[in-house]
Amino acid sequence: MLATSLAASAAVAEENAPLSIGPGAVAISLRVNGVVRTAEVPPHTTLAEALRGSLNLTGTKIGCDRGACSACTVWLDDIPVASCMVLAIDIGDRAVTTIEGLSRGDTLHPVQTAFIAHDAVQCGFCTPGMVMSCAALIARNPNPSLDDVKTAISGHLCRCGTYPHVFAATLAAAKAAKS
């Protein structure tokens, strides 16, 4: 009797349990740079891995893979995030923008142009992430102060030490974007 009711309640619990997917590859769709793309990835795939591995968008770099260097910064609905610390399966319908989606055809984004003009690149590994953070800053704040720029890139590590050139480039890009 008891065994029967336990089995019955277990069956009810099983029935009420929400649907699980994985651990193998599952089909997901990602809206990246304005285009809906599909990928087959297991649930433990990070957005950074899906972008680079499945979608061949290798402009996004993976540095520390722990959210501590910000090299992998992309936008989710125009907000900069570390793509190594979010799961591809968890993106849903949020729009992903990567460094590949920043230029308009052959026309570079003002921040990219300013990075070149101000020699804000050395080895270049941190650059795509830096550009994404600086472009997000001037999109939401057209008149950033030096402190605003420092705050915007406070999560980025650049072992070449390009920081002063990044500050100058971003301030110049904000000015250029207005004119």
């Binding site: 959210g67 910064t73 900069p80 570390a82 610390m85 979010v86 915007a152 999560g155």
Partner: peptide, 8 residues
């Protein structure tokens, strides 16, 4: 934390 982490 950092801006990227605070956003998530």
């Amino acid at each position: 934390a950092s801006p990227q982490i605070r956003n998530v």
